[in-house]
Design a protein around this nucleic acid. Sequence first.
DNA 1: CAGTGGTCTAGACCACCCA
DNA 2: GGGTGGTCTAGACCACTGT
Lengths: 239, 239
Amino acid sequence: MAEAYYMQLTRQLREQLRYGGATWVDEVGRLPAERVLAERFNTTRVTLRQALAQLEGEGKIHRSNRRGWFVSPKRLEYDPTRDAGFNDYVTAQGRTPRTEVLGVTTATCPAAASALGLDVNHPLYHIRRRRYVDERAVLVESLWVVPEQAPGLLQERFDHSLWGLLRERWQLELSHRSIRMVSEALQQDDASELGVATGTAGLNISRTIFDTRHRPIEYDEEHWLHDALSIRVELSNTT
Amino acid sequence: MAEAYYMQLTRQLREQLRYGGATWVDEVGRLPAERVLAERFNTTRVTLRQALAQLEGEGKIHRSNRRGWFVSPKRLEYDPTRDAGFNDYVTAQGRTPRTEVLGVTTATCPAAASALGLDVNHPLYHIRRRRYVDERAVLVESLWVVPEQAPGLLQERFDHSLWGLLRERWQLELSHRSIRMVSEALQQDDASELGVATGTAGLNISRTIFDTRHRPIEYDEEHWLHDALSIRVELSNTT
DNA sequence: CAGTGGTCTAGACCACCCA
DNA sequence: GGGTGGTCTAGACCACTGT
């Protein structure tokens, strides 16, 4: 086969997005309707959508559920090993952060409890947040904190760094951390909170945190849009 | 809408894969042909393929180009901050590693050179390898080594740890490392070397390595199948 | 209500893999 | 050469978003 037409389409669209200014992209980065693009490139919606899906996989464009396709902004650089707050590192990159607290409860979570080495029925503080970069929702996260380590935590506000709070108010020293990163397809709840279709490619980042005395402190799970971040870790010691 | 049919399909297939032993999966983990599955679930290939694509995004199944769909094996746990060799950590997890050297040359690479802080035309040793876990090709990688730091390197064999080689033969101490991880769509060359379709979801892991005197040593870029690995980093010092 | 993406049909032909 | 996935057509209806 010479080359699948949808791959040629992909290349054309990609190049027009990068150079050319792509006159057909409007001022907020929105692409024309699929039907319009399909007609312009003399093909059907199915084939056009294959090309769009390719670019989506590359992180060049993304879709907002039933609203249309948009050019994806530059990826955020993120170092999950540092405890700089989200607000800090987003601002440091010249972007605008925002955090929404979706829920604050006490509940049990077998996955979190077992990661922390506790009984699966051990109650935990649960905080759920949604975070934005330049008003685009890029991640939802669930934080599970061991109540004994930070009594009264749920009275606090959670629109800033949780780790900063734990350090200042409860003098907790976050020492050992175990971090796990795995690609995923966003499940229904996470996807709808991010305004994307179920199954959209995502990245799951989970941390388990212990203090200097190896007591379990916190477990958290972040679900990112895959095209929103680039992970960067700097290490200096030899292992 | 109640629920899209392909999502119901996805759920059924997922559950049958997890429990039930899925009698329709053969002994090597291969699924029946798309046409057969489509007929069995009373739908068309297009809709069935949507369901398969969902499971592919979840890392449950994968396809080998034009050969069929297969159940994905367990993800490999991988810590990119350690310099344990591929052979070592794959074996430690009870799996069987294999490395194929695809090419050994001297060439220029602007991306590698600039990451190392060298002139873009600075020649570098280039080693390209393909690596397998249990005979499944899971990644291709390009290694770019600064020739001045390891003269004669290209005479060596590269089916084992490069870092081990640099340490033993040239007494190089790998100190500072900058690691970057980003989701990607596998490009034509990488995809075909892995036997998958262009655009298949992948994970790109790049490292830039300096020695204790901050001299650039090596830059490498790994392209993994997204469902083949789970990244895990353990940290003990506070930052 | 108009426009958008999301889903789905019922076919077709082609390129590649393997026996 | 038979079977597989890969690509593509030309439609259709639906659900949701925004005005």
